[in-house]
């Protein structure tokens, strides 16, 4: 047995995982990203650090690239699980930061309207035509003059989703950009912009949902995300059923009860965060 494992271990040497990226394209991408950084000014040090510490430091220092002249209140807020924070900016704009997200912004400088976001947040931006409000999320830049919109980093794919509740929003990635109006949304993945119709924008904040002939799969995806629960279908065919309903800040049990009843399923609660739907059919 041991001997066999050793052989298998040796054979696995053959794992062929080479990436042959287009270096020219990668270099232009790097050059673009590099230029969009504000240079960190760190005092020159002359002592040598052990490599591992130096590497760790190099990665850590990277997070502080938003270094600006002093005198401005630079704030950084990170939310933990189940924590939603509401922030009012001095220009009158408001932001709601969803759980497991982090946001950097200036709290006292009225003409500085740039925030950088990791995770998800909903914005209500005070109008100021002369000074656009900019949200940076990964490779995506969202520019607005006065509007309400939601920005979300989709963890599974790294894509960024922007949904517009009111006003006009400009979404820019690399050389491409798109304008969104009320009710529109876009998914940005690998510098591709895919427009779609958005609904329940910022639903995580208000727990108000309106679903109009939407597939059960889509509805549940959103509900599971907002309520942090897992819902399993025994009958996968149901995912394609469409459903029209709305919820106003209801408990997860109530919501799933409504869906189960609508589909004729039996709802089984495994524990507080996981549910199973059995049987049922699209009717």
């Amino acid at each position: 047995m041991e001997n066999l494992n050793k052989k298998v271990w040796d054979l696995s040497e053959n794992y062929d995982k080479q990436l042959n990226p287009n270096i020219d394209a990668a270099w232009s991408e790097f050059d673009r990203r590099r230029k969009s950084l504000t240079d960190t000014k760190v005092a020159k040090r002359s002592f040598l650090l052990p490599l591992s510490i130096a590497a760790g430091l190099a990665l850590a220092v990277g997070f502080f690239f938003l270094n600006r002249p002093t005198g401005q209140q630079f704030q950084n807020l990170a939310t933990s699980e189940n924590q939603i924070e509401n922030i009012s900016l001095s220009d009158g704009s408001e932001m709601w930061v969803n759980e497991n997200s982090s946001i950097s912004y200036f709290s006292s400088k009225e003409d500085e309207r740039t925030v950088s976001l990791e995770g998800e947040a909903y914005f209500e931006v005070a109008p100021n035509k002369a000074k656009p409000f900019t949200v940076k999320s990964g490779k995506v830049e969202i520019k607005v003059v006065g509007t309400a919109f939601n920005v979300r980093e989709i963890k599974a794919s790294g894509a960024i989703e922007v949904e517009v509740k009111s006003g006009i929003v400009e979404v820019i990635t690399g050389a491409k950009k798109v304008q969104l109006k009320k009710g529109e949304s876009v998914i940005v993945a690998a510098e591709k912009l895919t427009k779609k119709v958005g609904n329940n924008i910022g639903g995580w904040r208000t727990k108000e949902f309106i679903f109009n002939k939407q597939s059960v799969a889509d509805i549940l995806e959103e509900i599971q995300r907002v309520y942090d629960v897992k819902v399993v279908f025994r009958n996968r065919d149901l995912e394609k059923c469409t459903f029209t309903t709305n919820f106003q800040d209801e408990s997860i049990d109530n919501i799933l009860e409504v869906i189960a009843t609508g589909l004729g399923c039996e709802l089984k609660k495994v524990n507080d965060t996981s549910f199973v739907l059995k049987g049922g059919s699209c009717s």
Partner: peptide, 18 residues
């Protein structure tokens, strides 16, 4: 990988590669 090189670039003044 882009981020790996960006970190190098951001820390080019202080980085010491031994």
């Amino acid at each position: 990988s882009q981020e790996v090189f960006l970190s190098v670039w951001k820390n080019r003044e202080t980085i010491k590669i031994t």
